[in-house]
């Protein structure tokens, strides 16, 4: 270990994440979560000391990142040996294709896609109204306080969106808003806010959420209803034959073979494949969107890649 000892909670967590690179992501998340709980409690318990002073002693109490990492690795190995892994998602071929149904992330991502239309409308309205009013009021006395209020709410929304994305996709997002350096004066803080890249990327995220939300929502709804429609086509066919459920005779199926009973098994098969593809798509969109959100909402010089 020729790296300097971490001097802040974030540095410690990053160092721990690096030490655990390659381990199971849930283990990494647990380890980071535990460390964050301990470190924040330790910092809060010593209000007279600065964060870096507290962190200086952490290696002798909590343990250096490499020690803690090896403790998690060892315990994980033991627990894994003692208990069979609960559910193994198959790695190859057909298994991995349909294994997506066992992945809770696919379901939560699908839910996120449906929800994103609503959040998109809210964010877009908020951002556009706030920007327009800020610009319009800038010449008046209340312009600056209004802008500050707008910025504060923007950060709260960014945090909330981050929590939502972490819940839906598992991508680790900040648990608390960014601390503004409080040393500088009022005007320099306003200036700093205006120069901060994250201010503008956050607003861009809020605005782009509407078109993205529309695309996500449409994909989810169309994919879901189309595949369910195909899967339950035989039921509709039976219901139609018994007259429980009328299909207007004006409806002509084209090509004609689609209307024959022989097509039904293929329709079910196509529906199942389509539904599975939709789940893969949802999971993929969840991952990509989480990275996109992380880049726009979380501006940090420290490594994001982990």
């Amino acid at each position: 270990m020729n790296r300097s000892a971490p001097r802040s909670i974030d540095q410690y967590l990053n160092a721990l994440r690096e030490e655990l690179a390659g381990e199971d992501s849930a283990l990494i998340q647990d380890a980071l979560y535990d460390a964050e709980e301990y470190l924040r409690a330790e910092v809060a318990a010593h209000p007279d000391k600065s964060e870096s002073d507290v962190l200086e002693l952490i290696a002798s109490t909590y343990g250096a990142p490499d020690e803690v990492a090896s403790a998690y690795r060892d315990t994980e190995a033991k627990v894994k040996a003692a208990m069979a892994p609960p559910r193994k998602i198959p790695k190859t071929g057909v298994g991995s294709f349909f294994g997506v149904f066992l992945d809770s992330r696919a379901y939560t991502s699908l839910f996120f896609m449906l929800l994103s239309l609503a959040t998109g409308i809210i964010y877009f309205t908020f951002a556009v109204t706030g920007l327009a009013l800020s610009a319009g009021l800038a010449v008046l006395v209340i312009g600056v306080p209004f802008f500050l209020l707008f910025m504060a709410l923007t950060r709260v929304l960014a945090l909330a969106e981050g929590r939502l994305i972490e819940a839906m996709t598992g991508e680790r997002m900040p648990r608390r808003p960014v601390h503004q350096s409080s040393a500088a004066g009022f005007w320099s803080r306003v200036g700093e806010m205006l120069r901060d890249r994250r201010t503008w990327t956050t607003l861009a995220y809020l605005i782009f959420m509407l078109p993205l939300g529309i695309v996500y929502f449409v994909l989810a709804v169309v994919g879901f209803s189309l595949s369910l429609g195909l899967i339950f086509a035989p039921l509709a066919d039976i219901a139609g034959r018994y007259g429980w459920f009328g299909i207007s005779p004006d409806v002509h199926v084209n090509p004609a073979w689609l209307g024959s009973p022989w097509a039904l098994p293929f329709m079910v098969l196509a529906g199942v494949v389509l539904l599975t593809l939709l789940m893969h798509l949802a999971r993929g969109i969840g991952r990509v969107h989480a990275l996109y959100a992380k880049n726009l909402l979380v501006a940090r010089a420290a490594p994001l890649a982990a």
């Binding site: 535990d34 909590y62 343990g63 020690e67 803690v68 403790a71 998690y72 315990t75 208990m83």
Partner: peptide, 19 residues
């Protein structure tokens, strides 16, 4: 005197909980 580092208890707590 630290017999064990405090960071090492968390994974054990999780393991005991899992058992």
């Amino acid at each position: 005197i630290s017999i064990f580092k405090e960071g090492t208890i968390y994974p054990v707590l999780r393991a005991l909980s899992a058992a």
